[in-house]
Amino acid sequence: MTLVTRRASAPKIPGPARTSPGRRVLRGVLRRPAVATAAGFLLLLIVLAVAGPLISPHDPDTQDLGNRFAGLSWTHLLGTDEFGRDVASRVIQAARIALAAPLISVGVAVLIGLPLGLWAGLRKGLVDAVAGRLADTVLSLPAMVGALAILAVLGPGLVNAMIAIGIIFAPGLFRVVRGATLAVAEETFVDSAVAIGSPTRRTLWVHILPNIAAPLLVQVTILMGVALLAEASLSFIGLGVQPPEASWGSMLKAAYTNQFDAPFSVVPPGVAMVLTVLAFNTIGDAIRDAVGLRRGR
């Protein structure tokens, strides 16, 4: 009897999954504790960056020269710096730059590298030859020297520094995109897209781009971490943010100058930077593992 009832129940027709492949990868990635922590940390950073002025205990630029190098206390959670400014507030203020700076430079790199890489990978020819040589040229320069040269033209300042870093990143991204596109362009579905009358631009964006999204995302997240470090380096040598604005790099520089008066002051910006870069890289690695890519180095 039981058997009969069970058989009588409607057979389950396996329906197509409702989630896109991208969403499935994302869900798989976030299930890992390390990745969830990294994502949570970045989220916290975003909240700090957006709502910083509301949260921070003091105005980050208000000086209190009578209270320089104050130690940790309830009024100044992370102490004060050489001008008596609240370090905790400055770390929070700098979170904004820590997020904006990589976004600008990776954005510039994507803006240059992605269209050129797609085009060169699909159509090859002159664009490929010229862009490839240019990429080789830029890659043959030490990154920092190249960035300094570009900065010398653009002039110092945070945005210029990040554009310079972006230009330095572009060839690497171009290479990754071009390589991935070359592989995807071999697939018949690219031909069949062309065969239904899809113009080149549409073929690139609609048919090829989603299929190279995995290596692109990996590269972009890892570049975010590198860009943050590059920004810190440029700010450390005074070519990035200009005072009084705070960046973790410029704070490190100040801490370095005053290391004998306030040895603790390297810790807040340093730890913030390490954790952020680590978060970017963890997420990049997780995406790479989730889509089954190996970083070929």
Partner: peptide
Amino acid sequence: GMVFQEPMSSLNPSM
């Protein structure tokens, strides 16, 4: 219209 040999690779996997 055109129909290719390998249906598996003639369709865009991400669409």
